[in-house]
Design a protein around this nucleic acid. Structure first.
Length: 423
RNA sequence: GGAGGGAUGGCAGAGUGGUCGAUUGCGGCGGUCUCGAAAACCGUUGUCCGUUUUUAAGCGGACCGGGGGUUCGAAUCCCCCUCCCUCCGCCA
């Protein structure tokens, strides 16, 4: 949610910049400014009426104490009248604020100047590439074949138990998952992130705070009986730790890491995108979250991007980094980097990490603030990134490291798996 | 799931219809004292919205878990919800 003050003063600039996200904000922002104006006028009227009736009530109380019943009763009538007036104002005000908030929650975050205009992921901008493209050879098998061959993952079994998109990891497949999670968490700890184990279901306030609601609710699994949502990422519970919190400047940077299962409905996905591990309804991920001073959040974004890159490097995976174009940047994000690894057998790039700066967009929704040098409360900036999402890492590792003698486990991972090859 | 008790300012804890945004203690901040510190003493101490003179400050309004109601007036009375505690039941 954008700050009202900011909208008031930068309306035209915001409208212009939102075009990069293909969002036409002219009508909605004009209406917001108009409602804001109305809100302030109405509040003034209401406050004046309230102030007056408050004064009267005090007088009435005094008169009663002095035993002057009749005078008091006379004043009562005045007071009742005033109350009716102020009640009308109050009602108007409630309606105005309600509409204002509804509109405000519909405006996406303003993209950073470096975000290119574009419709879809095809227009994302390549900013970095590292390592040779892996070539496992002509006879290379895609990961779903390898998973079957070595009995690592059973997709059919998952379908039986739950449905498509819920794979069952078995034996060394399960162990590989556990090894990756431990490796990622150990790396995060080394980098100064405090580990958190969050709830996997969240309430409405939390889902709203990070921006999943009201816009993306069809992407989340919803437990109607208890009005809870299964988390699509640990970002949601972790960032919401700081909802309604006022931090001290010296708390920055707040750094948390969490492993969690993630649940996504992925309505509308189809074809090669959902083959094997490419897109799942349930998957594992280690997420890193930082809360940072507004002046430093972009340095932090670079740091987090570099951190995720470092893990890929340690796993020996070639990767590239893209800046998402406006159309592909999420509702709440101002700037997002995607990290992609090359999947040798599928011969395509797979997104394994997404690192974003939300600036004050989430903070404003969840009232995450800090006391600045002058003792004033200001909104903090929030950032998060995957470090990393497991399934596509597994896909790339299996495909790129396949040899006639089996699948080689990257050296950095061996201490965690306890085996060097899958044969 | 059933029965009961509770939710007040950073924390602890008063307040059950009338100048209560709220007694008090602790903590925090500033000061006196001191070479310095402790102790003691004095002062100060939240959040949000609006507004005025466009630093800072003053003024108006809201906020005693959340929402609604009664009343001229509610932290205090009534209703609904959430969370916490105790006991019973169930249970990984």
């Amino acid at each position: 949610m954008l700050e009202l003050n900011y909208i008031r003063e930068h309306k035209d600039e915001i409208i212009e910049r939102l075009k990069v996200k293909n969002f036409n904000g002219e009508d909605i922002l004009n209406r917001i400014v108009e409602l804001d104006e109305k809100r302030r006028q109405t509040q003034k009227d209401r406050d004046n009426a309230f102030a007056e009736s408050k004064r009267l009530s005090k007088d009435i109380g005094k008169l009663f104490k002095e035993g002057k019943q009749e005078q008091a009763n006379a004043l009562k009538e005045n007071s009742t009248q005033l109350k009716n007036e102020s009640r009308q104002c109050e009602e108007q005000l409630t309606n105005i604020v309600k509409e204002l908030n509804e509109l405000l929650t519909q405006v996406p975050n303003v993209p950073h100047p470096s975000v290119p205009k574009g419709e879809s992921d095809e227009e994302n901008k390549l900013v970095y590439e590292e390592g040779p493209l892996p070539d496992p050879g002509k006879d290379a098998l895609p990961h779903w074949e390898l998973a079957k061959k070595y009995d690592l993952i059973d997709f059919d079994l998952g379908s039986k138990i739950s449905g498509s998109g819920f794979p069952v990891y078995k034996g060394r497949g399960a162990k590989l998952q556990r090894a990756l999670i431990n490796f990622f968490l150990a790396e995060a700890e080394k980098a100064g992130y405090e580990e958190i184990q969050p709830p996997l279901m969240v309430n409405e306030d939390s889902a709203f705070g990070t921006g999943q609601l009201p816009d993306k609710d069809s992407q989340m699994y919803y437990v109607e009986m208890d009005n809870m949502y299964l988390i699509p990422t640990a970002e949601v519970p972790i960032t919401n730790i700081y909802r309604d919190v006022i931090l001290k400047a010296e708390d920055f940077p707040v750094k948390n890491a969490a492993y969690s299962a993630c649940f996504r409905r992925e309505a509308g996905s189809y074809g090669k995108d959902v083959r094997g591990l490419n897109r799942l309804h349930q998957f594992d991920k280690v997420e890193i979250v930082q809360v940072q001073h507004p002046g430093k959040s972009y340095d932090t974004l670079e740091e987090m991007r570099e951190y995720a890159s470092g893990i890929l490097r340690k796993l020996g995976l070639s990767f590239r980094i893209l800046i998402l174009c406006g159309g592909d940047t999420s509702f709440a994000s101002a700037l997002t980097y995607d990290l992609e690894v090359y999947s040798g057998a599928q011969q395509r790039w797979l997104e394994v990490s997404s690192v974003s700066n939300f600036e004050a967009f989430q903070s404003n929704r969840m009232k995450l603030r800090f006391k600045d040098e002058n003792g004033k409360n200001r909104l903090a900036h929030t950032l998060n990134g995957s470090a990393l999402a497991l399934p596509r890492i597994v896909a790339a590792l299996l495909e790129n490291n396949q040899t006639p003698d089996g699948i080689k486990i990257p050296e950095a991972l061996v201490p965690y798996t306890g085996f060097e090859t899958i044969t």
